[in-house]
Simulated assay, not measured.
Amino acid sequence: MLKKALIAVPALMLSGVVMAQPYVSLGYGYNALSHDNSVAFSDGTTLTPDSSDNIWAGTLGYRFDNNFGVELGYRQFDANDSRSKVISVVNNTQTEDEWDADLKAKQFVVMPVYFHDVTDKLRVKGGVGLTYTTYKTTGSVSRETENEVTDTESSISHPSISVSNGQKTENSVGMALNLGTEYEVYDGLYLGANAGFQFDDVANNTQLLGTVAYYF
């Protein structure tokens, strides 16, 4: 009896402990981006690519115990702004000028994470970490023609308008805050939602993502 009792005590102590485990996570959702980067054109047109768009995210994580872990993440998102002007319509062929500006961001995140198990299936987690982001801002202007009968299209670089200012690549270090929840739908497989805010000296953005994660 004493031997069984001695065996049972460690088992009870370990029953509430989560063993260290690695995990991977993928996310997709909505990103609201705010910044001051603009692209100027030689005709005086200025575009600021700050429209909201989708965001992709991938994470490698390691949970040390019940409450603490660390994540290395990658996020990719962009923004666009455009403008067009009809120049002429002749013999069912429409000619228009189109201005376009893009901002593309590739972001790496290192974040300590705190876990709290609400139930055996449901958990919440949050973290504050560092980001390193490469922002690339580009612009272009073209002249396009489209035949409305044959639906034939063609596009060339604009013969007289060009990008005058604003094309650049910037690297910036910032901070990120995240709060999310996960629910286990199958052994080790979790579906969740994540809300985050990231900022640096180039831009800030608010993110809402749906996630799927697997804990090994």
Rank of each mutant, 00 (worst) to 15 (best):
T95H: 00
V24E: 03
S25Q: 08
T137Y: 05
V90M: 10
T145A: 04
A79V: 11
T138E: 06
L209C: 12
F68H: 12
Y74P: 09
N92H: 03
D117I: 10
P10M: 10
Y214A: 06
W56H: 08
G166N: 02
E98W: 02
T150E: 15
L12G: 07
L122N: 08
A8L: 11
F108P: 06
F77G: 01
G58L: 13
E153C: 09
L208W: 14
I156C: 03
N147Q: 07
K125Q: 11
I55E: 09
L208P: 14
M1R: 08
A11F: 05
E153T: 13
A5C: 11
S88H: 04
S140C: 15
Q76N: 08
R123F: 10
R143N: 01
A195Y: 14
T211P: 01
H116Q: 06
Y23F: 15
N91M: 10
T59I: 05
T138S: 00
L179G: 10
T150Y: 14
L103W: 02
G16E: 04
V17Q: 12
V124D: 09
T119C: 14
T169A: 07
D36V: 14
D120C: 09
G129T: 03
E148D: 05
K125P: 04
G61P: 03
L12C: 05
A203Q: 10
G210Q: 07
S38W: 05
G27I: 10
G174S: 05
T45E: 00
Y183F: 12
K125A: 15
R83I: 05
F41T: 13
Q207H: 10
E71Q: 02
Q94M: 02
E98Q: 13
A101P: 08
P22S: 15
S142D: 08
L122D: 05
Y190C: 08
V118K: 06
V86Q: 00
V39M: 01
V202W: 10
T206M: 12
S84Q: 11
T59P: 07
N37L: 07
L26Y: 00
D187P: 06
V70Q: 05
T95C: 00
V185E: 04
A8K: 08
M111G: 05
S160Y: 09
V118D: 11
Y186E: 14
S154V: 03
E153I: 11
V39R: 04
V24M: 05
A32G: 06
K136R: 12
P49E: 05
K121A: 15
S42R: 01
T131S: 14
